[in-house]
């Protein structure tokens, strides 16, 4: 909750700042300022599932809000450059079925806390929740007064990173040579082993629907695996693939 308040406060500050600059934000200079709110829907997902994944049992998008401020500089009537600052959550809940999937669970309660690694066959329920500060930079193409298209890149840093889940109704063995142990339920938490930086591509469109109010959509494709390949405990590279839908207001 605290974090959300912080994000809102920062965004409001940004809006105020944008307003303060309103006097200079004339069409003559080619500068425009926008604030945008929206939500991300998608997945932090491997591109090409590992062969050990045998089924996808469930998928639930989580409430991923985004709030952003952008500055747009139009060089001529068609082309411009857009840069901004975006606070956003990216996350999802997914259930997968795996077979002989090498992973580490950390037992967090009881006498024998610690990490246990083994080959797991069964179901995994995973929750990913990342809170990013993103800096997108895009080229803008203005088709007409209503439609803007943009494509570019973004860099993001996760101020909040959670990757947790549980293994349920399965069996695990340390190696194929050790006995099988049934597992009713065990938790894992890889939040400490995540890559906080993400860079990627984004592409989107904006359509003015009423005066300065527009409906926005953009798709972001992260190129950095959220599970840090150097310290990961699950045999998977997963990337942020999210569609953002929202509204923006141009001052």
């Amino acid at each position: 909750m605290k974090r959300i308040s912080l994000i809102i406060a920062l965004a409001l500050a940004f809006v105020t700042l944008a307003h303060a600059n309103d006097s200079v934000a004339t069409n003559d200079s080619g500068m425009e300022y926008k604030v945008a709110v929206g939500f991300n829907i998608g997945g932090t997902s491997p591109i090409g599932l590992p062969a050990e994944v045998r089924s996808i049992n469930s998928y639930m998008p989580t409430a991923n809000l985004s709030i952003a401020g952008y500055a747009v500089k139009m060089f001529n009537s068609a082309w411009g450059l857009k840069a901004g600052l975006r606070f956003e959550n990216k996350g999802m809940e997914a259930g997968i079925g795996v077979k002989n999937y090498k992973m580490t669970v950390n037992v967090q309660s009881g006498d024998e806390v610690g990490v246990k690694t083994g080959y797991f066959t069964g179901d995994i329920k995973n929750k990913t929740r990342m809170g990013y500060v993103s800096v997108p930079v895009s080229a803008v193409y203005r088709l007409n007064k209503r439609w803007d298209f943009h494509a570019g890149v973004y860099a993001a840093y996760a101020i909040d990173a959670n990757f947790t889940g549980e293994v349920v109704q399965g069996r695990i063995r340390e190696t194929p040579l050790t006995p099988i142990v049934s597992v009713n339920q065990a938790d894992y938490d890889y939040s400490g082993d995540l890559q906080r930086w993400d860079v990627g591509a984004e592409i989107g469109a904006s359509c003015k629907v009423y005066r300065n109010l527009a409906i926005d959509a953009h798709f972001t494709w992260g190129l950095m695996s959220v599970l840090d390949p150097d310290k990961r405990k699950m045999d998977m590279d997963n990337y942020n693939l999210y569609l953002n839908l929202g509204l923006s207001y141009t001052f």
Binding site: G42, G43, S45, P46, I47, G48, L49, P50, A51, V53, R54, S55, I56, Y59, F219, W221, L241, L243
Partner: peptide, 10 residues
């Protein structure tokens, strides 16, 4: 969107 980027079960 996800499915278009992630291939099916191998």
């Amino acid at each position: 969107v996800l499915l278009s980027f992630t291939s099916c079960i191998k």
